[in-house]
Design a binder for these strands. Structure first.
Lengths: 131, 131
DNA sequence: AGTTGTACCCATAGTGCAAGTGGTACATAT
DNA sequence: ATATGTACCACTTGCACTATGGGTACAACT
């Protein structure tokens, strides 16, 4: 698996990592069950901070593209191929687009929408407290 | 109509103006059809920038609380009393809260939601272009 | 001439957040 | 000992947005 990171790229480093690993899986350059380099290893090889690599790995694991097994290392998930073609951000985008469109046609200013959004996001403390 | 602006207040100046004018209407200190001071006049009296006052007036007009008639001045809207008690931002808040909650339970990170939101907001150019 | 709302220009201060870097530390295993 | 993923802490850089200000200008009307 060949991974190339472009620091000049406008895309965040962790995002480049995510998409390249997904690509490698879709191109069958790595197969489900295959081991992936450790976070520290990859960070050293690509000259990245290990937290940047860890962030990419966490996103990939959340999407069931990879599977971390603690001290035993990280492996390509069994359903990696299917899950690599699904992009949560696309779904997110359309969902949000739809909501924004509704609010705007209700007469809301972009500025107002932004403020209401910021409020909603910081209210997570209140919502989580219910648990 | 007595308007007092508190620069020390954490609330934005234009927001203070909006709520105070609404209050004056709800308290029937000004009646529908009554003229309001001009933007420049009010800005001078309250020692505010005329753009700040204009912003407040624009919001009030959008909500049908006041009515601007160009060179003829600004007046209290006929339905001002009813419209003064409706706050769009509350409606906005619940609408957005609902959407955020959905996205979060779909597994989206707050960070991802923010980015998707920022994208959706800046895509307005594309959407308006369709017109 | 003077006034109305409005629409531009540019500028400032403050806030909030993303992204990345650095270091240290931990439990769990080989 | 050495390696794994993970979890903290603090920090810098850069960007985007809000709120506010100062100025100039316009068409339409009195």
């Amino acid at each position: 698996m060949q991974i190339i990171i472009d620091i000049e790229d406008k895309a965040p480093l962790f995002a480049q990592l995510v998409s390249q690993i997904k690509s490698a899986i879709l191109d069958e350059k790595v197969m489900p069950g295959d081991p992936l380099p450790s976070i520290r290893q990859l960070a050293t090889d690509l000259e990245l901070n290990k937290k940047t690599v860890a962030k990419a790995y966490q996103l990939l694991e959340r999407d069931n593209v990879i599977q971390t097994k603690g001290y035993r290392g990280t492996f390509v998930h069994q359903d990696a191929i299917a899950n690599s073609s699904f992009d949560l951000s696309v779904w997110l985008g359309s969902k949000i687009d739809q909501t924004i469109k509704t609010l705007r046609s209700a007469g809301a200013t972009d500025s107002e929408i932004r403020i209401a959004f910021a409020n909603a996001m910081s209210n997570k403390i209140k919502n989580n407290k219910i648990k």
